[in-house]
Nucleic acid binder design. Sequence first.
DNA 1: TCCAAATCTAGAACGTGTTTCAATAATCAT
DNA 2: ATGATTATTGAAACACGTTCTAGATTTGGA
Lengths: 199, 199
Amino acid sequence: MTSATETTPGSNAQRERRRRILDATIALAEEGGFDAVQMRAVADDADVALGTLYRYFPSKIHLLVTALGRQFERAEEQSRTRQVPGDTPHERVMHILGQTTTALQRQPNLTEALTRAFMFADASVVDEIHFVGMKLTAMITRAIDGTEVNREPTEEDTAIVRVISDVWFTALMGWVTGRTPAEDVTKSVDVAVRLLLRD
Amino acid sequence: MTSATETTPGSNAQRERRRRILDATIALAEEGGFDAVQMRAVADDADVALGTLYRYFPSKIHLLVTALGRQFERAEEQSRTRQVPGDTPHERVMHILGQTTTALQRQPNLTEALTRAFMFADASVVDEIHFVGMKLTAMITRAIDGTEVNREPTEEDTAIVRVISDVWFTALMGWVTGRTPAEDVTKSVDVAVRLLLRD
DNA sequence: TCCAAATCTAGAACGTGTTTCAATAATCAT
DNA sequence: ATGATTATTGAAACACGTTCTAGATTTGGA
């Protein structure tokens, strides 16, 4: 019995601990955002010692970015199951990003916590960051292509997806830091997509 | 005698203190980046008490973002004095941003400190953030227009400038956090500018 | 089953951003 | 000049991320 949660390495007890830690992280983030995710609180809620928490995740940032990865993984899975509606690449990309944005905005504290961590991450978190980037790229690329057989994305596609991601991320950041209103996120992305994917 | 440094309010001694604080901040940032800008060290180097430092700047983030504003103000002034070389908007924008990027990359620690602060800033720093944004917008807009009499920027212009800024900022962030190599910053921006300003 | 190695626990301790407070100094209106 | 108000100082204290230590506990191989 080595694969109740699949892939993750370690003994059963260790996978359980890891799961409890990430669950506690998300729960605390949902309640109070970045500041509420305090390492002592996470350790308590997950029923592990502080030292153990640090053995699993070397910093608060690692912890949160890993949690972000788990969320994105789920989002990407879900988006993969059904076809993206819309007649043009513009419409389809906006559908995916608009939907994702709305979902994130429904959990403002959680999103604030995860986005801030992502922003503050340094080179030591490069793998987790890259993981998140890949999931996002996959979603956008699929939306651009729509029903077409999944062709290999061209250089141009990759470049466009990259720019869209950057704009989306920056806009999201403006929102989580309280600098711009919620609607502006979707608006910014829409403008960028329009400029980049002239239909 | 109320205007040796112009505009800034307060008595002479207060303007002096403020200047010393910002100078100390920049000096520490140049040496060791974000982590080296420690409030106690800033206070010491500026010859003020810790409490006084906090009376002038309510947080480390305010302090650094204000310093960033001062830097951008200077950069924008300089760029305003002479004409932007280049035959197309693309060339001119890349000239300005390429040059600014290079300048920033020559002082990696300082740039890391200021960019990180900018990233982490929340709503309470909205004025300082906006100030920085305006300086950057002004520079890019001037580069797009080139020699033309300075027309009022259209909605489209503003939107394009916004997207370029976002990409530039995200790329810069990738670099200061050690996730992407220096050349990639200019490359990313170049791709975005090419996509947005088809010559 | 038993031992050695790895892991986990509880808790203290440290560093740095931030707050607080009493005492002193500077400023300003009268 | 004087008293009132405000600003500055020096130092202590607090909060939270992070590190460290000494002793249990678990695990995995002989």
